[in-house]
């Protein structure tokens, strides 16, 4: 490829930012993600103002309340009779939030959804569901791939045959069909936590074959190296050889696989939740937040319903950049 090396700083910064937000969702999100406001169904994003209706400037940004437009059901206009300044770290002790406004005004920076829930809050909590599901599933898949690939590559024989044929079989189906078929045999109605755990385990268990095959190849090649045979001559045990000589190169491969696998796993969770087979309501996931977009009225009138797709694209982009930057750097050091 071209000589310039891909940037590493911005993907790391973006991913760190997104994960921090996800971790701190309880504080970052302005509202409880399940809290419904029946008067504000599909309300557009709240506008931040510095100049009020009378033309006066304010130092602190403020918002107006949405009120239903007269004679136009489903539409909202700003009630300019009272201003509500933006407050940092507001609320009572114990339930403080990073950003907020005083009730009865509400701060919906990304608008609300069809049940009047705050989209930003759902997005932030959904990040927790989706980002960590992807991370967990990828970690599980790579760990399984490392274990199985190392064993297969080191000991060979029937174990190797079994694992390789098994992984071929798992890869003989299109990934999403395999995922749906496997999901078909698991309970459909589950609590949010159980469903999340189930998805992570399922994705992890289905995701090991490519990692295992790569690791196996690396271990197989490393096992034939002279220094492994030499260490055997010094009386080294299997455990010593695996730990000291075979696991380090396998781990390097595993790490690159991890970075490649995480966005795939995030997408898999998003897709499953979108299809209604993942984490169920009211727990938000980036996937289930996209479901309203399949209905015509939403598409036609509520453009902000598309906002949940943006962090997903940003996440995938950052992971891809991280992967290509990491690959380049590994190749330089190798």
């Amino acid at each position: 490829m071209s000589g310039r090396r891909p940037a590493l700083a911005w993907p790391v910064a973006v991913l760190a930012f997104l994960h921090l937000i996800a971790l701190g969702a309880d504080v970052v999100a302005p509202y409880d993600p399940a809290e419904q406001t029946r008067e504000l169904i599909w309300a557009p994003p709240t506008k931040l103002h510095l100049v009020d209706a009378a033309g006066r400037w304010h130092l602190r940004p403020f918002v107006y309340r949405w009120r239903p437009a007269d004679g136009a059901p489903g539409r909202y206009v700003e009630d300019t009779s009272r201003i509500f300044p933006l407050r940092l770290w507001s609320g009572e002790a114990g339930t403080r939030r990073l950003l907020g406004v005083e009730p009865p005004a509400r701060l919906h920076l990304l608008g609300t959804d069809g049940l009047g829930r705050d989209q930003l809050s759902r997005l932030v909590h959904g990040a927790r569901t989706s980002l960590f599901a992807g991370l967990g599933a990828a970690l599980l898949a790579v760990a399984a791939g490392l274990l199985l690939g190392t064993l297969a590559g080191y000991f060979g024989g029937w174990l190797d045959d079994l694992l390789m044929r098994g992984s071929e079989l798992a890869m003989a189906l299109p990934a999403l069909y395999l995922l749906l078929a496997a999901r078909a045999f698991l309970p459909l109605e589950l609590g949010p936590a159980a469903a999340w755990g189930l998805i992570v385990v399922l994705l992890g268990l289905l995701g090991w074959p490519p990692a295992a095959r790569l690791v196996r190849g690396v271990v197989l090649a490393a096992r034939r190296r002279g220094y492994v045979g030499a260490a055997r001559g010094f009386g080294a045990s299997h455990v010593y050889l695996l730990r000291r000589h075979l696991l380090p190169p396998a781990l390097a491969v595993g790490l690159t696989q991890l970075v490649l696998l995480v966005p795939q796993m995030i997408l898999a969770e998003v897709t499953l939740s979108f299809l209604g087979l993942g984490v169920s309501e009211p727990t938000p996931s980036w996937g289930s937040m996209l479901v309203p977009l399949t209905s015509y009225p939403v598409l036609a009138a509520h453009g902000w319903a598309f906002l949940p797709a943006l962090p997903l694209v940003l996440t995938v982009l950052s992971y891809h950049q991280l992967a290509s930057a990491g690959r380049q750097r590994l190749r330089r050091t190798a």
Partner: peptide
């Protein structure tokens, strides 16, 4: 290519629906 790769087919399909609807 890099940009397209970051947009999952799910989002692409929804965008196409948006185009169709609008």
């Amino acid at each position: 290519g890099a940009t397209l790769q970051a947009v999952p087919e799910l989002v692409l399909a929804l965008l196409a629906l948006l185009v169709a609807a609008r």
